[in-house]
Design a protein around this nucleic acid. Structure first.
Length: 786
DNA sequence: TCCTCACGGGG
DNA sequence: GTGTACGTGAGGA
């Protein structure tokens, strides 16, 4: 018998047990095993359940059967069910499937959880919990416990060894034709495998894996290109390739999939996850903005293994948290449905057409404006008013009714959704409070990333409530949330106006208000008064020196709710809807807008803003000069677009369609939901394929279209300067000065990987330069590398 | 002018 | 293992 302490790193079913990986304080990995007997439940009449028992016994499935009573949240009562306790965790999914196929009319519960989830729930653990373990001589766990909590604000993360693996040239997509040598970075040193011999590549990778034994392999295009290529070569040449730490099995492959989310198609490439080691592909991981620390926070909170966590949506994450709550309470957990898409009728669209409240802002520049925001409004409403699929239309509380729509909501029993949400809201607030206090880096950065991760969980929680396929979703609950939201914003507006403020704009959960000579303390009092009246926390988001609400480009007299920008007194800029906020705007244009806004930030009056115009125009001229001189980095000129359909399905010849078809013609398999990146080479070219070029097929011989980029730049500049009366035509007059166009030399910049890894995992490309001279001697063909 | 296409939100 | 609905702007036909 032996004692171990360390972080719970990986859990999966293997053989008759589960494999458990622990990383100790010295960073050493321990492979242990533990017992797990997951149960699912079958609901039906007594006769039906008897038949299920007989069938399972006859089929000699490895399961123990028992009668059980469990709570059905939707029926609001205990239900007699058949408990099927699976004896071998690896067989759980197969046994569920056989029962479901044989008895398609019966209800199954707790029937689609992963072995890792069962393990976490049964042992009261979560990924990266710091654990105390007793093991016997065969490495079987006798006891595993933790003092760590998912709700702890401060927790240690194990000393993870990270290996970074990519093709040289970083974010260029090898599936779209990019070819370059493999580059491996570990312990702050980069190693380039500059050979076209696939056998040698595999051998070198194997050597590095054995030498560094990384806990985490972070890659670019590892899921869809590097790992499949390596595995294929390893198979062909019969070479061992220890990508897994668990040598008993191969990496787990999941096929590519496309799905509809957030109103657009998302494509997830083929995925390769590892056992006893993590593989994270930066190009196939969602939500990069909160980085690995944020992903670890989400894994801890949602009790999903980290490799899954980075590959699934936050909707799945919040669903997993609800499942955890239900499991803890002993509720029956329904299936995650996956009914096919269905078209809504016109009437359903009409009645469903009730979202947040939207005003038309008062167009133009405003000075000394305050913005009040309800904090996490929809989640706060769910928690405060107990909105949950099983609490709505409750029979026991006829007096508690949702405004406008009149549904009843239970006041007696706390709902599953509020139960899950409340601690999450609280934890996020705690991090945000801490961020406001003076704390040093990197602590602040951890808190920022964790709070950002929570934000996404909270936001999708609301969406999930209205999602047809959610386990704990119900459209009426969704409607109740927005109804409360409208009511609450109207109450706030009334209060503000009663205090003599003018409401310039209001949108779902925020108000922009103005009253001459208001001291800051009055806003705090106002926020308190609204919070008291509505029961929801509202905060002073900021006081703006100035804010510009933009008019519609179609109708210059009408304000649009979601296009505005402003400078706060603390120097922060806030932008919505303008080019700089959009993912399909080249960085070059984003930078130009931000530069103008930065110059305007400190102005307090219209006259002060106007005084900065000459400087602004000089900056614009400098940008145009840089364009003409070919000094703009290639990566700053690239457009990124997500394809909403397969290349051949495009009806019009937009640049997107042209580039997509061009790539497809070169043998690149493009799927709806994938992104393409391209530069505009000659916008007016007669031959469509000459108009733009995918970044992967761009080389120095292609120039970029200076005229076209200038035109787009000036339009973006107009967005910023129009509130000051400057039109694009005026700008053109200013800049009507011919400069020579020079050949272009540019390089892709590559910072994202480092940003993603964050302050926790320091690695650098410092030694790349020294190795690069070595590669220069090696010829590169279009089939080389990876 | 109408149609097609892609993006945002939340902090 | 997948929020919905809608408004907006740009550009092609």
């Amino acid at each position: 018998m032996r004692r171990l302490t360390g972080w719970l790193f990986d859990v999966y079913a293997h053989g008759d047990d589960v494999s458990v990986w622990l990383i100790d304080d010295d960073g050493a990995a321990h492979h242990l095993r533990d017992r797990l007997r997951p149960s699912f439940f079958v609901g039906g009449s007594a006769a039906e359940l008897r038949r299920v028992c007989e069938w399972i016994t006859r089929a000699r499935l490895s399961a123990r059967l028992a009668r059980a009573e469990r709570y059905d949240v939707f029926a609001h009562r205990q239900r007699v069910v058949l408990q099927v306790q699976v004896q071998i965790p690896a067989q759980y999914a197969a046994i569920v499937r056989r029962v479901a196929n044989t008895f398609p009319t019966l209800d199954l519960y707790n029937a689609d959880l992963s072995p890792a989830q069962f393990y976490f729930f049964e042992r009261n653990l979560f990924p990266l919990a710091y654990c105390q373990v007793r093991v016997d001589d065969t490495r079987a766990i006798l006891e595993i416990t933790t003092d760590d909590s998912r709700w702890a604000l401060d927790y240690q993360i194990p000393p993870l060894r990270v290996m970074f693996i990519q093709l040289e040239g970083g974010e260029l997509n090898p599936n779209h034709g990019h070819r370059a040598p493999l580059e491996i970075t570990c312990d702050s040193r980069a190693y380039v495998i500059a050979t076209h011999d696939r056998r040698q590549v595999v051998e070198r990778v194997r050597d590095y894996l054995l030498r560094f034994d990384p806990d985490v392999i972070v890659s670019r295009w590892g899921d869809s290109f590097i790992l499949p290529q390596l595995l294929d070569a390893a198979r062909r040449y019969r070479l061992p390739l220890p990508l897994n730490r668990d040598s008993r099995c191969s990496p787990v492959m999941r096929p590519a999939r496309s799905y509809f989310s957030y109103g657009r198609i998302i494509h997830k490439t083929l995925a390769h996850t590892l056992l006893g080691r993590w593989h994270i592909d930066l190009e196939n991981a969602s939500l990069l903005d909160y980085g690995l620390e944020g992903a670890i926070e989400v894994a801890r909170l949602t009790q999903q293994p980290t490799q899954q966590t980075v590959r699934v949506s936050t909707g799945t994450g919040i669903s997993a948290m609800q499942v955890s709550t239900a499991y803890r309470q002993g509720y029956l957990i329904p299936f995650h449905k996956s009914e096919p898409e269905e078209f809504k009728t016109a009437s359903a669209l009409l009645t469903g057409d009730k979202g947040g409240l939207t005003y038309q802002p008062i167009v133009g520049l405003h000075f000394d404006v305050a913005e009040l925001d309800f904090a996490s409004m929809y989640p706060a409403i769910m928690a405060r008013f107990n909105i949950s699929p099983e609490t709505i239309h409750c029979r026991c509380c006829p007096d508690a009714r949702v405004p406008e729509i009149g549904y009843t909501i239970c006041r007696r029993a706390r709902g599953l959704v509020p139960e899950t949400l409340a601690p999450l809201i609280e934890k996020r607030m705690a991090y945000k409070r801490r961020l406001k206090q003076a704390a040093g880096e990197p602590q602040k950065e951890f808190d920022r990333r964790r709070a950002a991760a929570h934000k996404w969980l909270l936001v999708t929680c609301f969406g999930y409530l209205g999602y047809k396929n959610a386990r704990f979703g119900r459209i009426e609950a969704h409607e109740a949330v927005t109804a409360y939201g409208r009511e609450v914003l109207l109450r706030a507006k009334d209060i503000v106006e009663a205090r003599g403020f003018r409401v310039l704009h209001a949108l779902t959960d925020s108000l922009w208000i103005r009253k001459r000579g208001t001291p800051e303390a009055e806003y705090a009092r106002l926020a308190e008064e609204i919070a008291r009246a509505t029961g929801l926390p509202i905060e002073l988001e900021g006081i703006y020196r100035w804010v510009a609400f933009l008019s519609s480009r179609v109708n210059p007299h009408a304000g649009v709710p979601n296009r505005y920008f402003g400078a706060r007194c603390d120097g922060e800029l806030k932008l919505r809807g303008i080019e700089a906020r959009r993912g399909d705007t080249p960085k070059f244009i984003q930078k130009a807008q931000l530069e103008l806004l930065a110059a305007m930030t400190s102005a307090r009056t219209r006259a002060e803003l106007a005084a900065r115009l000459p400087h602004c125009l000089e900056m614009v001229a400098a940008r145009v000069d840089a364009l003409r001189a070919g000094q703009v980095p290639l990566s700053d000129l690239a457009f990124t677009y997500r394809l909403s359909r397969d290349p051949q399905a495009y009806a019009t010849n937009t640049l997107n369609a042209i580039v997509a078809r061009e790539l497809a013609g070169r043998g690149v398999k493009l799927n709806a939901g994938e992104s393409i990146r391209y530069l505009i080479t000659d916008y007016t070219a007669a031959v469509p394929s000459d108009r733009a070029r995918a970044t992967e097929f761009w080389d120095g011989s292609w120039g970029y279209d200076v005229e076209r980029y200038t035109e787009m730049l000036l339009r973006a500049v107009e967005t910023i300067l129009l509130p000051l009366g400057v039109h694009a035509k005026m700008l053109q007059g200013w800049l009507a000065q011919e400069l020579p166009v020079q050949p272009l030399r540019a390089r892709m910049e590559d910072k994202r990987a480092h940003e993603y890894l964050g302050p926790l995992f320091e690695w650098s490309n410092r030694s790349v330069a020294s190795i690069r001279s070595h590669i220069a001697a090696c010829p590169q063909s279009s089939r080389g590398g990876g």
